[in-house]
Simulated assay, not measured.
Amino acid sequence: YDFELAEGQSRRTEQVFLDHTYRWIKPGGLLVFVIPAERIGDCSKTVASQFRDIRIYRLGDPECVRYRQVVIFAVKRGRRERDRLQDAEIRDTLTYLSKLTRGPVGTSPLPDDPDFRYVVPESEPVELVNRGLPLDEIEDLLIKSPAYRQGNRILFGSQTTVSGRPLTPLHGGHVGLLCTAGMLNGIFGTGEDRHVACWQSIKVSDHIEETEEDGTVIIRDRERFTQRLTLVYADGRTVVLG
Rank of each mutant, 00 (worst) to 15 (best):
D87K: 15
H195I: 05
D206M: 12
Y57S: 07
L133I: 11
P169I: 03
V162T: 03
R84S: 13
D235I: 03
Y96V: 11
L85N: 04
E63H: 15
V32S: 07
L142H: 02
V16K: 12
N130C: 08
P104S: 14
I143E: 06
P114N: 07
G28Q: 03
E212R: 13
L141Y: 13
G164Q: 01
V105F: 13
G28S: 04
R80D: 09
K144Y: 11
H207P: 00
E192R: 15
H207K: 08
R52Y: 09
C179K: 06
V129W: 02
I40N: 02
Q9H: 15
S44M: 04
R149D: 01
I143F: 06
T95R: 15
R58I: 02
D2H: 14
D53R: 09
F225D: 07
G242P: 06
L5P: 12
L229G: 00
L231F: 13
R228W: 10
R80H: 04
L241W: 09
R91E: 15
L59E: 02
R237I: 04
V204W: 05
Y148H: 06
H171P: 04
G29P: 05
E124H: 09
G41W: 11
L184I: 01
T93A: 13
H195E: 08
P111K: 13
I219Y: 03
R84A: 05
L128I: 08
E7W: 11
P146L: 02
S145T: 02
S49M: 05
D87C: 05
G236V: 08
R131N: 08
F225R: 14
V65K: 15
F73N: 05
V204E: 15
G132K: 07
E14W: 10
L241A: 12
K45E: 12
E63L: 10
D115V: 14
D115Y: 15
S145F: 10
L184C: 02
L97A: 12
G103Q: 11
F73K: 07
L142T: 03
D112E: 15
R222G: 03
H20G: 08
Q159K: 14
R237S: 06
D42T: 06
D19M: 05
L241V: 14
E209D: 08
T107M: 14
F3K: 12
D214A: 03
E209H: 07
R23A: 09
R68H: 13
E63M: 13
D87L: 11
P62G: 04
F188P: 00
S108T: 13
A234N: 11
S158A: 11
G151Q: 12
L141E: 13
D19K: 07
P125W: 00
Q50V: 01
R237D: 09
D2M: 14
R165E: 05
T216W: 01
P111N: 14
G182M: 02
Q159E: 09
Y96L: 15
R117T: 14
S98Y: 04
A88M: 07
I40F: 06
L167C: 01
V240C: 11
L100S: 00
F116T: 11
S163V: 01
L59D: 03
E7P: 06
D112H: 14
A48V: 08
